[in-house]
Design a protein around this nucleic acid. Sequence first.
DNA 1: TTGACAAGTTAGGGTAGGCTAACTATATTA
DNA 2: TAATATAGTTAGCCTACCCTAACTTGTCAA
Lengths: 162, 162
Amino acid sequence: MDPAAAGNLSSSLEDYLEAIFNLTADGEVARSKDIADSLKVAKSSVTGAIKTLAEKKLVNHKPYGYVTLTPAGRAAAQNVARKHDIIKLFFVNILGVDDTLAQDAACKAEHVLGPDIIRRLLDFTEFVTTRNGSGYNLAGEFRKFSRNSNTQTDSMEAAQNG
Amino acid sequence: MDPAAAGNLSSSLEDYLEAIFNLTADGEVARSKDIADSLKVAKSSVTGAIKTLAEKKLVNHKPYGYVTLTPAGRAAAQNVARKHDIIKLFFVNILGVDDTLAQDAACKAEHVLGPDIIRRLLDFTEFVTTRNGSGYNLAGEFRKFSRNSNTQTDSMEAAQNG
DNA sequence: TTGACAAGTTAGGGTAGGCTAACTATATTA
DNA sequence: TAATATAGTTAGCCTACCCTAACTTGTCAA
C-alpha cells in the first residue's frame, strides 16, 4: 500500500477506485462498462481514469481486458469505502437521515473528511449505540426533538437541495 | 436571492463568495489582494473568479475597484458561511475535534452537505447541548469513551492526514 | 467459421480552475 | 507633481475531467 500513490488521489479517482472495489467485492472482475454504468460516465472517461490508476499502480489492466485492484489499490479503495460506511451510518442511525440522501451525501463527504474526524465519527456512533443498548435511546429521543423543531422550513430547504 | 444563479455554484466559487463575505463582515470592502491572500491563490485567479461571479450577479465590481456582494451574493455567501459554522460547531463541541482541523474540514464539507443534513446536524448539536444543560454531559462522556478506545492508531492516521 | 453486436480505445474538443509573466492603473510619497 | 510601489488585469499555458464520434477488438450464435 504505497502511501505516496494513494495519498493524493482526487475525488474522481477515489470514486473510480471505490466503484471497482464494489464491483469486485464478490470475487467478480470489474469491466469498464460496469464502472461506466455505476458512475454514470462515458466509457471513454473510464478508459482515461483506468490509465491514470494503472500508472499509479493501483489497478491492473491490459488493453481490452478487465480491471483488478493491486494490493495498494485495494487498500486505498477500502479506506474510501470504510469512510463512506462510517459517514452513512452516522447520518442514518444518529441523524435519522433518509437512506438515499445519506448514501448520496456520504459519496461526497467521504472525499473530504480526514482520518481523525472519521475515527471520531465512528466512535461517536458506537458510543451512542452502546448507550442506547444500556437503556436510553439517544437517537430516538433526538428524532422526537427534531420533529418538533422543524416543520415550516422544509419547503425552502427542498428548493435548495442539490 | 436568485436561486438559479446561486443554486449551481462550484466549491471554488462558493469559497470566493465566502471569502468576500468574511472580508466584508465588519463593513469593510473586499479587495482583490485580500481575497487572494485569504484563499491562497494568485491575484489573476481572483480576477477570473470575480468576473464569473459578476456575470452571475452575485458580486458588484468595476475594473480596478473593490468588490461587494449583491443581495443574491450575500444570501448565497451567508448560506455557505452558516453551513461552515454548523459543521465546525458539531466537530468541535460534539466530536471534540481540534479547532484548526475542524476549521479545515468544515471548509471542505460545507460544499457537499445539503440543507437537510445541515439542519439535522444543527438540531443534533443543539439537542446534545440542551441535554447537557439538564444534567448529563453527553459530549463530555463521549470524550472519555473516545480516549479509551484510541491510542495506538494515531500515528498511522497522522501519516494519512492531508 | 464468420458476421454482428458489444465492449474498449483513440482522437479531438469543451469547461473549470489554477499558474506565471507582462502590462496597466492607482496610490503614495518625496 | 513626478517617481515608484502596489494592486489589478490580460494573455497564454497547464492539468484534470468530462464528452461525442469513430475506430478496433472480442465474443457469441447462427
